[in-house]
Simulated assay, not measured.
Amino acid sequence: MGSASAVLGPLCDGQHSSHDVLHYTAPSHLELGPLQLETCWWVPLLFAVAGVILGVSHPVLDSWQQGRGGQQPRGGADPSWTLVLAAIALFVLQYAASGGLEAPLLGQTLMGGLPTLDIVLAAAAVAIWWAFDATPQGLAMACLTAVAGPAVEVALINGLHLYAYTHPAVLGVPTWIAWVYFAGGPAVGNLGRRVSSSLVQRRRRHRAGEA
């Protein structure tokens, strides 16, 4: 989980810097074919920690809910790789869209003054949760991620001055970033379920072989 997140996270985050959404104080620039990514040495580590937390918490909460007769995720405790990769792909698309749409939608509002970009990304994030999770525990983790993620960013920006958003709204971060974190919950959570299931099955085969 840590390795996958350490690779995927900076690739997604690089979409923000490439669209002038944010820039690092001491950046590292990577060229991956047509992709020009701006990142920093600590970014993969931070994403790795987040990946481990989300990857472990979802199977644990699923097991707890199952013991209480609660709802199980759409893909079950053992989701297919097709479902896992589809959830990740849509999360990556939402992440990229948040960067690409910020400039054209900046300042635009809908529904009584709510920012248009927030509405678009919120709808996409909730749709991802509904399509690939749809459980109370998954919703709780998505909401927790949507709160904890921006809170960590506030500390990194205002406390450590490691990077800055071009168009911040509250305490140095844009409001729409919470919906990007929200969508990451079901995407990374299903990868965690897939990995957990594989480990459980391997352990069972090993025990059967010993017997």
Rank of each mutant, 00 (worst) to 15 (best):
L110Q: 06
A134C: 09
P174G: 07
A178E: 11
G189P: 08
L191H: 07
G172Y: 07
A140I: 13
V126C: 01
G138W: 04
Q108Y: 05
L199V: 15
H206Y: 10
A148I: 14
P174N: 05
G192D: 11
M111N: 11
L139T: 07
H167N: 14
P115G: 10
A187N: 14
V120G: 04
V180C: 13
R205M: 00
A164R: 09
A124I: 11
A164K: 08
G189D: 08
S196I: 01
Q201P: 03
V180Q: 11
V152H: 01
W130S: 14
V170N: 07
L144I: 08
W176K: 01
Y181T: 07
G189Y: 03
T109L: 03
I157E: 02
D118P: 04
I119T: 08
H167P: 10
I157Y: 00
P115D: 11
G172P: 02
A151P: 11
H161V: 04
A125P: 12
A123I: 06
I177T: 07
H206T: 09
A169R: 07
L162C: 01
L199K: 02
R193N: 09
L114F: 13
T175M: 10
G185S: 15
T166D: 06
G192W: 12
V120E: 11
V195C: 09
G107T: 00
P168V: 07
L191A: 13
A164M: 03
A142L: 08
Q137H: 15
M141D: 05
R194V: 04
T109C: 03
I157D: 01
A142H: 09
Q201H: 09
V120Q: 10
V147S: 07
G184M: 13
I119W: 10
L121Q: 09
D133M: 02
A122M: 15
A187E: 13
A127S: 11
A125D: 10
C143V: 14
M141W: 15
S198T: 04
I177W: 05
Q201Y: 01
A178Q: 15
S197K: 02
G112D: 11
P174Y: 08
G185M: 10
H206M: 13
V120P: 01
L171T: 03
P136H: 02
A127L: 14
L144C: 12
T166A: 12
I119S: 04
A146N: 14
L139D: 05
A155E: 02
G192A: 08
Y181E: 02
V188S: 08
G107I: 03
A164C: 03
A178P: 14
G209F: 10
L114E: 14
A123P: 04
L171I: 04
G185D: 12
Y165E: 13
V147Y: 06
L199R: 13
Y181M: 04
Q108P: 00
A155I: 15
L171Y: 11
P186D: 10
H161K: 01
L160N: 01
H161E: 11
Y163I: 15
A169D: 14
I177H: 00
V200S: 06
L160D: 02
G192F: 06
R203T: 09
